[in-house]
Design a protein around this nucleic acid. Structure first.
Length: 909
RNA sequence: GGGCGUUUAGCUCAGUUGGCUAGAGCACCUCGUUUACACCGAGGGGGUCGGCGGUUCGAGCCCGUCAACGCCCA
């Protein structure tokens, strides 16, 4: 009931207040409520129109370049993108404000398989397949799709406030980048670093293409380990082999044992008769076989398993492929021809069981490869494909990280990188799809000549035959991405931009593409440019929901950044995301977390409104306050500002964005609003014109500096206020305003700053007293302060008015010899003891109880400190300053305990 | 099987080369119709820092070990 009446009263007063304001036409020009949506739209347009994002080598200076991890053309913005681009934008905006010649190159990836899948799905709705259209028509269709739907993410990035250099936007299939791809292929081919080989690759039966090892995602599944009985030829006994993929027995060409395995020594050289097919295959000895696993006997299927393939090579075994491209059994599977591979597995097991050929089936946890695009189970399979020889490329890439030319942040990711580099395997780059860069290899059907060429060839250079055809396959999408840091600047052509901006500064990405992209860019950069592509790799965490699950459509737990922008604003999204993202740790988000940023934005806005209300007639061009006039609170604020500046810079340098945001939040909310504005109110309301002017100078100085520090994190709000507060007289846009580095500490006395810390403590103690006696703001109280020393006494005396205002005190007495006349609530602050004299009864017992509890605490701490100081080892071994701290503390605690004891005695009368 | 990460307040997380009484936001409780802000202000409660062992004058932090969870690679 009570709450309800409060609400009603509140609503009524709010209504009156709002209408009153409206009729009065407030002085403030800033709207009462910040309309983020309009503001954000407006400024992005303006920045674009003014070309603020563009960098040009012709302007010279100090280059700063970031290349975006190009999102897929099919992509739509998710929180991972938001975080990723947020960080890049912060780095970019800071660099720009620091006066660097800055470009952040955006673009998109053609995403071969993903895009082809999307278009194929669209075709399917029309009842068509890509084969119905044919290669050329299909590719046309993909381009059409791209024009129509592709790249929505680019517009979404704009909503985020990403200050990308849009004039430089690139697409991995555009003419220039395609040329780079062909050039790269031909160079590597001519250096024998690209070859064609018949090897076991990861085959996706749904996408019907080969994949690289990295594109096969291992998922732990609860499968089965099937123990099958194979008959030894000419003997009655049966061997038991264990396998997770029984259907591949149709392609078995041997059984292997470890040569040192005593159990099976006598089997080597004998023959096994395969069930169902009755094919006869040899028993061979190979070190690869682990005697501990399963029965110590393994079946060998060289066409369907990489290890079996290797063994097959060693023992010169035939390779029998039992499946078709789409994962059905082929004619080598005999009776199972035409069956799906998993159906076949079931049927085959039934048949083997019927024949008494199944020993047992164990539950078995194992990792199974899945297509990273469609999650279909990968079929390892023998297939002729194109590969890049990676070892020679890896060597310099290992060097670059080892010798520190490239740094990972956090550092431990370099281990992941190294582990992969050192065990690198050749990269399967051919894909049996249509959307992508077609492999520039040509074959002559007459003389069998094979060559690489950047142009479409019509005649054989060897025999002049026109019976020439190009390879049907296209290249892995990542074959274009790994050239990104230099191809975006026109390579293989030479350009001033390339010379100027390469290498870029920081690569910002998630850990999931260290192998796919980061590692390969390092290799290609060193190979082609003979230089690293970036000097820092910043790896951020994965964005998860508040239960720690990855955001995914199927779980329905995705939080759409655009919804958050709609609900809370882009600035709120940006600030909140960075504030809750610890360096390299995963981020758990839920809607409410974005309230932090929104509330902070509102706080800044309202502080600006407050200042504006008092700034009539004030000239913001004239912020050169007189250092000699700085009051203790002025000095304190400026000291805190200086700390915030250096701390922000330090944190940014170390990529500690969360710490940077916390520092700014803390400075602005607490130092600036809670303390300084409250301090300034009496001056602004009642001070002389000179006092007012001086205080406003300090305020605007601090505020405009804070805005600049905040700009990379909250670009829109800060730009709006930069103009709203008319700070744009110096620099038209805050984007180019000077980044705060060091500020003069003229007129700032550390002792005075310390005094203000003490003043705040004193006020806090006074407020606690008020709170303990449930005094409302209207109830007045007289405070008596007994300062601990004369200096404090003088400082407090001079500063009395301010302390009174902040304590809502009727009066304050300052007396180093103050002794309470009767029972008075009291508390101890760093500047001295505070007594509150109130009318009415003091609860003496409660007061004694409170002070006793405090005394107990102090005595406890004191015991600890004494114990430390009486420990000779501590005094002799700990550094002097640490000991000194303890000694000071001991003194303090003794003083405090004495005071408390006296106060309690006094109360006891 | 190998590697990496995580474990701190009810929740989400900071805590840097070991050194003052372990912090923040949210949530919770009390109070508040003062002219920047209720998306606010003032105050408050809440922690054996995953377990065990070790190093050290001193451990949330370093070392060892165990456990749980997550990720990557085989």
């Amino acid at each position: 009931m009570r709450n309800l009446s409060y609400v009603v009263r509140w609503m009524i007063s709010l209504w009156i207040f709002t209408n009153y304001e409206w009729r009065m036409k407030p002085m403030a020009e800033l709207a009462k409520k910040y309309e983020a949506k309009d503001v954000e739209e407006k400024w992005y347009q303006q920045w674009m129109a003014d070309g603020r994002f563009h960098g040009d080598s012709a302007n010279g200076g100090d280059p700063f370049c970031i290349v975006i991890p190009p999102p897929n053309v099919t992509g739509i913005l998710h929180m991972g993108h938001a975080l990723n681009n947020n960080i890049q934008d912060v780095l970019t905006r800071v660099a720009r404000m620091k006066g660097k010649n800055t470009t952040w190159v955006p673009g998109m990836d053609h995403a071969g398989i993903a895009t082809q899948n999307v278009v194929e799905r669209a075709l399917k709705k029309e009842g068509k397949t890509r084969d119905d259209l044919g290669r050329e028509k299909f590719i046309e269709r993909v381009w059409e799709w791209k024009e129509q739907y592709g790249g929505t993410i680019q517009n979404q990035l704009k909503k985020l406030g990403a200050s990308c250099d849009w004039e430089r936007e690139r697409f991995t299939m555009d003419e220039g980048l395609s040329d780079a791809v062909l050039e790269m292929f031909c160079r590597l081919y001519d250096k024998d670093l690209i070859y064609r080989g018949n090897r076991i690759i990861n085959w996706c039966p749904r996408c019907q293409t080969a994949l690289s090892d990295e594109e096969s995602e291992h998922v732990d599944v609860e499968g089965a380990l099937y123990h099958l009985r194979y008959a030894v030829k000419g003997e009655k006994r049966k061997l038991v082999v264990a396998t997770t993929r029984p259907e591949t027995l149709l392609g078995d060409t041997a059984v292997a044992v470890n040569p040192r395995d005593e159990r099976y020594k006598n089997l080597i050289g004998k023959t096994v008769v395969l069930p169902i097919t009755n094919r006869e295959i040899p028993i061979v000895a190979d070190d690869y076989v682990d005697p501990e696993f399963g029965t110590g006997l393994v079946k060998i299927t060289p066409a369907h398993d990489p290890n079996d393939f290797e063994m097959g090579q060693r023992h010169d075994l035939p390779q029998i492929n039992v499946m078709t491209d789409d994962g059905l059994m082929n004619k080598n599977a005999g009776p199972y021809e035409g069956m799906d591979r998993f159906e076949c597995r079931k049927q085959l097991m039934d048949d083997l069981k019927a024949g008494g050929l199944v020993e047992k089936v164990d539950v078995h946890q194992h990792a199974v490869g899945h297509c990273y695009r469609c999650e279909t189970v990968i079929e390892p399979r023998l297939s002729p494909q194109w590969f890049v020889k990676m070892k020679p490329l890896a060597r310099p890439a290992i060097e670059a990280v080892n010798d520190g030319r490239i740094k990972f942040v956090p550092e431990h990711w370099s281990k992941t990188y190294m582990g992969w580099m050192e065990n690198i395997r050749d990269w399967c780059i051919s894909r049996q799809i249509w959307w992508g860069h077609r492999i520039p290899i040509f074959y002559c059907d007459d003389c069998n000549h094979e060559w690489a060429s950047k142009v479409i060839e019509t005649a054989c250079p060897k025999c002049a035959s026109t019976q020439v055809r190009q390879d049907e396959d296209v290249l892995d999408t990542w074959f274009s991405s790994w050239l990104w840091p230099f191809s975006v600047f026109g390579w293989p052509g030479t350009s001033d931009d390339l010379k100027f901006y390469y290498p870029s500064k920081t690569l910002v990405t998630g850990n999931e593409i260290i192998f796919f992209w980061v590692a390969r860019m390092v290799m290609s950069g060193l190979e082609i440019m003979d230089d690293i592509p970036f000097d820092t790799v910043y790896i951020h965490g994965t964005v998860r929901d508040d239960q720690g699950r990855k955001m995914s459509k199927s779980l329905g737990n995705s939080i759409d950044p655009l919804d958050i922008i709609e609900k809370y604003s882009s600035d709120a999204l940006r600030f909140s995301l960075l504030m809750i993202t610890a360096t390299g740790q995963d981020v758990y988000i839920s809607d409410e977390k974005f309230e932090i940023g929104r509330n902070f934005g509102t706080k800044i806005w309202n502080a600006a409104r407050f200042m504006e209300m008092h700034s009539e007639g004030f000239d913001v061009k004239d912020l050169a306050f007189d250092p000699a006039r700085l009051s203790p609170d002025d000095q304190h604020l400026l000291a805190k500002l200086n700390e915030a500046i250096s701390s922000t810079n330090d944190n940014l340098e170390r990529y500690r964005f969360n710490d940077a945001t916390v520092v700014l939040y803390d400075f602005f909310w607490h130092s600036y609003c809670d303390w300084y504005i409250e301090y300034a109110k009496p001056i602004l309301f009642n001070g002389s014109p000179e006092e007012k002017k001086h205080t406003l100078q300090v305020m605007h100085h601090a505020f405009s500096t804070a805005l600049r520090l905040l700009h990379p994190f909250m670009p829109f709000l800060t730009e709006e206020l930069w103009h709203g507060m008319e700070y744009n007289h110096s620099e038209e846009t805050i984007m180019l305003a000077a980044w705060p580095e060091k500020v003069s500490s003229d007129g700032i006395d550390p002792k005075v700053v310390e005094y203000v810390d003490g003043k705040h403590d004193l006020i806090r103690v006074g407020r606690i007293l008020r709170s303990e006696y449930n005094l409302t703001n209207k109830q007045t109280a007289v405070f008596n302060v007994r300062p601990s020393n004369k200096t404090y006494a003088e400082q407090i005396e001079t500063d009395k008015a301010s302390i009174m205002a902040l304590l809502k005190a009727e009066a304050i007495t300052v007396d180093v010899a103050f002794a309470p006349a009767g029972a008075m609530p009291s508390g101890i602050s760093t500047l001295g003891t505070v007594y509150m004299s109130i009318e009415g009864l003091v609860d003496v017992d409660a007061e004694i109880m409170k002070l006793s509890v405090e005394l107990d605490e102090v005595v406890g701490h004191l015991a600890n400190v004494k114990k430390k100081l009486s420990n000779e080892n501590f005094v002799s071994r700990a550094p002097k300053d640490v000991v000194a701290v303890q000694e000071n503390r001991q003194e303090e605690l003794i003083g405090k305990s004495e005071k408390l004891t006296k106060m309690i005695e006094m109360l006891r009368g």
